[in-house]
């Protein structure tokens, strides 16, 4: 993995500080050209991995990159699935089973499974999971996706419930079908590492908030630092600026001083900011 990964929150109106700012960003990036232009800047500044949700609009980005292989020879994507709000809103309207049925290419398989009853459960679950993964991966066809992530809402939901086999199912499918490494995004790193251990996922890629403030680091800063120190996993730090609550230089100096962090994922809306972050990180790494 590259040391710096480019994130996509800024493109989709996600801002953990201000709804007004989020809306302004959604307006600014409503044309795909505006998104592509920032991605071009990132690429040209040497940040060539785009870690992105499987939001419908990403399909326009991937289509563009697919059509211009000579412009983006080193472009890599780290898809993060699913785009959770799509499911959450569908669940409010249709319930959990209805929501899953809505996003399956063929809802019939679920109906057949439900008619089949309990004895089919394991096979069905795997079948449905892999179909859902394939549906989300369609937009990345023919592109480089060396790491594929499960989003934190799903990871943490399963983690809390103790539905741990799903992590192994996800990992297995991502490895065999896409020859990619599975990654897990979480807000609960110490607890997740125990769970991944239990299902035999060795040295997993785990992406989580790691920042000086301890913002959204459940298990506490101490728990995270101990995990970084002692546990075998490949850590990606996100939210290193704690949504802007920490000054960039201070945030980067701190994060680069922590042990065993393999990559940082960050978002930016201008070439100057991308270059500044890259240069700041270069001072330490």
């Amino acid at each position: 993995m590259d040391r710096l990964l480019f994130g996509d929150n800024q493109f989709f109106g996600v801002n953990h500080m201000s709804e007004e700012k989020a809306r302004a960003q959604a307006m600014r990036f409503q044309d795909i050209e505006a998104i592509q232009s920032v991605l071009d800047d990132a690429y040209d500044e040497g940040v060539t991995t785009f870690m992105c949700t499987t939001h419908d609009r990403i399909a326009e980005v991937t289509a563009h990159v697919r059509a211009n292989p000579q412009r983006y020879p080193d472009q890599k994507f780290f898809p993060c699935m699913p785009y959770a709000h799509k499911y959450a809103n569908a669940m409010t309207e249709d319930g959990p089973i209805g929501a899953i049925r809505r996003f399956l290419p063929d809802g019939g398989i679920l109906d057949a499974a439900m008619r089949g009853g309990m004895s089919l459960a394991k096979k069905d679950i795997e079948g449905v999971t892999t179909l859902l993964i394939d549906a989300e991966m369609k937009m990345f066809e023919g592109l480089s996706t060396p790491v594929i992530f499960l989003q934190n809402v799903v990871v943490d939901l399963l983690l809390g419930m103790g539905f741990l086999d799903a992590f192994a199912t996800f990992a297995e499918h991502v490895r065999t079908r896409y020859h990619a490494e599975p990654g897990f995004i979480t807000m609960n790193t110490p607890m997740l590492l125990d769970a991944l251990d239990k299902v035999g996922l060795v040295n997993p890629i785990v992406c989580s908030n790691i920042n000086k403030l301890g913002f959204r680091m459940s298990g506490g800063v101490e728990g995270y630092l101990q995990a970084l120190e002692k546990r075998p996993f490949r850590a990606i730090a996100m939210s290193v600026f704690a949504s802007g609550a920490i000054r960039p230089a201070e945030a980067i100096e701190w994060i680069c001083a922590q042990p065993n962090i393999e990559s940082i994922v960050f978002g930016a809306s201008s070439r100057a900011h991308i270059a500044a972050t890259r240069d700041e990180v270069k001072k330490y790494w």
Binding site: P96, I97, A113, M114, G117, M118, A121, K122, D124, I125, L159, G160, M161, G162, F163, L164, D165, A166, N188, M191
Partner: peptide, 26 residues
Amino acid sequence: RAHPQVELAGICDSNSYLLSVLGKYT
């Protein structure tokens, strides 16, 4: 279930399929 003081001792739903999947995996 993630709460350190809680023992999650039962779940109940009218959808038997969903319930069986949850029971089996959790």
